[in-house]
Nucleic acid binder design. Sequence first.
DNA 1: ACCGTGCGTCGAAGCGTTTCGATTCAGCAT
DNA 2: ATGCTGAATCGAAACGCTTCGACGCACGGT
Lengths: 338, 338
Amino acid sequence: MATIEDVARRAGVSLSTVSYSLSGKRPISAETRRRIEKAIEELGYRPHAGARALASARTDVIGLLAPLRTGVDLHVIMQFVGGVVTGASSAGYDVLLLTQDEGSVARVTGSSMVDALIVMDIEDEDERLPALRTLAQPSVLIGLPRDVHGLSCVDLDFTQAGELAARRLLTAGHRSIALIGSPVEVVERHTSYADRMMRGFTDASTEAGAAFAVLPTDASAAGAVASVDTLVSTMPDVTGIVVHNESALPHVISRLREHGRRVPEDMSVVAVCPESVAVSLPTPVTSIDIPAEFIGRTAVEMLIGLMRDSPRGEARLVSPRIVERGSVADAPASASAR
Amino acid sequence: MATIEDVARRAGVSLSTVSYSLSGKRPISAETRRRIEKAIEELGYRPHAGARALASARTDVIGLLAPLRTGVDLHVIMQFVGGVVTGASSAGYDVLLLTQDEGSVARVTGSSMVDALIVMDIEDEDERLPALRTLAQPSVLIGLPRDVHGLSCVDLDFTQAGELAARRLLTAGHRSIALIGSPVEVVERHTSYADRMMRGFTDASTEAGAAFAVLPTDASAAGAVASVDTLVSTMPDVTGIVVHNESALPHVISRLREHGRRVPEDMSVVAVCPESVAVSLPTPVTSIDIPAEFIGRTAVEMLIGLMRDSPRGEARLVSPRIVERGSVADAPASASAR
DNA sequence: ACCGTGCGTCGAAGCGTTTCGATTCAGCAT
DNA sequence: ATGCTGAATCGAAACGCTTCGACGCACGGT
């Protein structure tokens, strides 16, 4: 590989001139710049990333901590990841993908492999937070832990999403509703989005004085079937459900049908999932979009802001929007009918 | 951050002794090693990755080229990615994730950001191949291009998978079968797996003298519905199908049901998909597993082999296995019944 | 004619490792 | 005693880049 010295020699200038021409940190005459560019072109020169990192103390690499824990939907994760990579790429950064958090933060951070970190799958009392707070490098969480002190976060406002979903059903007159939620492992870990979603749903239901239930549901056909069966047998009054579980969603709907509950005539459904999931169902479902790709890109933007300016924490919560696709109907006039 | 010099001072040895102690490339007395380790511990020292890369000409980072093109299933991609990251991690490597191939290969490779590359979403005449062949760094393809000369590849043997799937139906007596395949974009790009799958299916059908059809299918409910509808109306004789399209699979099955075709009584189904997809369907489906995670890990192993030894190309094709889950039934005695 | 003032360029000092010769010293055969 | 050998350690030279402080020079103001 050609080095900057080769370029300098060939262009007949000094080493530092090439560097300044490349970085633009000092003025270089048009003529000189032209010669340098020609030399670079001819030699196929690329700056050595390691040398650059050593000298400049930056790598132009962002670390992405995306633990692949059980119960999370790979499709959804990949959407976030895609957003992060896209955003990073268009800002001139590359992405180092880390899936095990056992010491990963300390390692990549301590050895200066990355300039900054994006951390996914945040739990309410996440163990990684203390480390992140004292880190030299800035970080952005995708998710919202209980204590955001000194941290930057971005996520869909799941609390609001929970409220919004519940209210959509409540204002349609449903007086008994249920949340088909994340898998039990996810709930037990107090994964931030699951907790917040449940809280929003619960609060809105309570406030409205409606009967409600929350059913953690395994991300599989079996899980969906189990939850629907439970629902139908123990809470036959339920006429509206919120489904916050991408993998279970299609099976929930088909299981309802098998129970003779038509959507939306007998059962109203609001989903919380990426749009791509909602529209690919056989019957379109009214849903609150999880703008995964957008959030991923936003995380990168925030990170770049943090690297440029003073590292002041900020929690950015994207407001949920509901898109009507006809899976919610008004409840029958007599509230607790059937 | 502490440097190796700090460690040396604190341990009362020279700089190079610390380095040798760390790398084990020269003998160091037990006593000295102990002191060095203590100093490292106390200082929380981590070698600077850039400096190391500069001095040693290796980064311990693998580049993963995973273009997110339309028509590919994110869930499946993520399984491959997971396998790669897991494998890399356990071999002491990190993974740089690249999703746009516009010049990415040249960039990360030319600037010595990675020691090696894994390339996904291989097309039959992939444009990236010439560059890969002349690269200083070794690479492994996940997929199988037409000309494997000088390259290392690993993938499921999709040709065999196509044959195996078709034969499973043919030996059950079905004389008219169809392949519900990858989306048309994927087919038109001549994505390696789609091409090979089709070839295997076609060859086996032809050889057996059976009637057959291939229907590229969009990865959505609508695509599934369209293909099933086409099939039912234009080829009513078809009594067995192979589905090689993860996203469409559930909708294919439910659409068949809507046409009054029961699985397996009226229609036998063989799927080609990751096991996790096959088992999460409401009705289990006989399937050929795409061992994505395994292939990802294997790619890393091959890559490490290439870095150690002489870089001789090798194409590793994993033989498909079919797992019976009861979605294939024998054809009615009279061949072209109905 | 003379002194700033920028502009464009250069030289050299790092940045933190690895690695290639030394060098020292003990132990051993001669 | 003497020379050898090998183990353990050291010093210094890369590795390829960024960046700081000079330096030369033309230019405008006085």
